[in-house]
Each structure stands twice: as C-alpha cells, then as structure tokens.
C-alpha cells in the first residue's frame, strides 16, 4: 500500500503560484500570500486522499494502452514502457469534498480563495503521482538493487495517449473501489483525481525528443516527462 500523507501532498507555494500564472521571478501581493495560507488550511481540512496501484505486465499493458485505437500514430510511451523494469497501473483521488468546497467558495463570490484552493488541489493531486513514483522506484530497488531507476507517471490525455484510454485502464484497475468514476467523456469524478501508468526504468528510457505533433500544442512544457527528457 502507498501512504499519501497530507504533509507530502500539500504543495509548495511556488508550485501553486506557478499554477495560477505568476511569472517566474514575480512576487505575490501580501493578500495573495494570505489567501494561499487559508487555501492550504482548507486543503488539509477537505482532502480525503485515496490511491490504488497494481503491477501490470508489459504485454497486458500493451492492450490497455492501445485503448480504442485512438492514440496518436507515434507516441513516446510506446518505446518507453517496453523497456521498463516494472509497470504499475495507478489512480488517486483527493475525494469529492474538496471540489465541493471550491464550488461553495465560488457560489459565495469568494473567487480568489476558490481559485487558489483549486490550484492547491490540482498541484496536490499531481504530488500524489510523484509520491507513487517514488514508491515504485523503491519497489524496483528492493527487488533488483537498481537504485538508479526512475519512475514517472504517464496518463491518458497526454503525450499522444488518447483520453479514451481511460476506459481500459479503469476496466483493469477498477478505481471505482476508491470512489473514482468515469463519465462518457472519460473524465474522472471527483475532478481532483489522477490516473495512468507508473513506468519504472533507467532515466534513459524516459528521454525522448519533443518532436511529436502533439508536443507543439502542449501547454504544459514543464510537465514531468518532458522536463526529464530535456537536456540540462
């Protein structure tokens, strides 16, 4: 079992400010900084973190990854997962209560706090992916003494993996067990949830050139996968 302590899920201020669009080197107003502190309190009060993670063989994952056949013709993950030391299907949610809290803030015209809490929750959910990745790295290290292995989470909807891939991922992992469901657009409910495959292997297998057509349209150039892929 992976433990998701709130202290580790809770985002660093810089990550929240970046998610809210504060430019690098910019400094938030004192009132914005105070809002963040309040949002972090609400995050701690309203988060109900739950996650599941299960190993999957490369052959089985190939079928899951193929999904409905709507992936981009060429994707980086195709070459990455086949060279992995281990693969784990993963899903995590912060629960419904935090989304409800965000909605209430907007209903009561507290837009600023609502937006900051939304950003805190989004970054917090992403942090769960990093916690799970570190867990996967430890698993591989314990089994193979391969301490240098790195794990990253790859998710449907990103890097050419069509979002309809959620369907087969859910059929295999059954995140309904922790309260996550999919709608007809393959969107997870509760909203502050993440899913995907944790790929553990040498750092080298995660590197890829960002030359794919979808890389041009990507609005998250600092995403984990691409940040890893870029030369220093």
């Amino acid at each position: 079992m992976i433990d998701f302590p709130l202290a580790r899920l809770q985002p660093l201020p810089a990550a929240v400010y970046a998610a809210l669009g504060l430019k690098s080197g910019g400094s938030p107003s004192p009132r914005s900084a105070a809002l963040l502190q309040r949002a972090l309190e609400l995050f701690r009060e309203n988060s109900e973190p739950r996650g599941i993670c299960e190993p999957v063989a490369a052959g089985e994952f190939a079928g899951i990854y193929a999904g409905r056949g709507q992936n981009a013709p060429d994707t980086p993950l195709t070459g990455i997962f086949q060279r992995a030391a281990s693969l784990h299907l993963f899903a995590f949610t912060l629960g419904a209560r935090i989304s409800h809290a965000i909605g209430l803030l907007f209903e009561h015209d507290d837009f600023a706090l609502g937006a900051v809490l939304d950003a805190v929750a989004s970054v917090g959910a992403d942090n769960a992916g990093r916690i799970a990745a570190e867990w996967a790295e430890r698993q591989v290290a314990a089994e193979n003494s391969a301490a240098a292995d790195r794990a990253f989470l790859y998710s449907p909807g990103y890097c050419g993996w069509h979002i309809s891939g959620q369907e087969k991922l859910f059929a295999s992992l059954r995140p309904e067990r922790i309260g996550i469901s999919l709608n007809t657009s393959f969107l997870m409910n509760p909203l502050k949830s993440i899913s995907g495959v944790l790929v553990t292997g040498t750092a080298a297998i995660h590197r890829f050139s960002t030359v794919y057509p979808f890389c041009d349209q990507c609005k998250s150039p600092a995403c984990r996968e691409r940040a890893t892929a870029r030369p220093a």
Binding site: L20, K23, P28, S29, R31, S32, L35, D109, F111, A112
Partner: peptide, 17 residues
C-alpha cells in the same frame, strides 16, 4: 502586463460585485 496575478484580479472582482 503581468504586474498583478490572478488572485489579485479576483479580489478586485469581488469588490466590484
């Protein structure tokens, strides 16, 4: 022009409301 960022705008909006 990035002199202020989103929460500041939203606090202003609340004042406008």
């Amino acid at each position: 022009i990035h002199e202020i960022f989103l929460p500041d705008v939203l606090m202003a909006a609340r004042a406008m409301y």
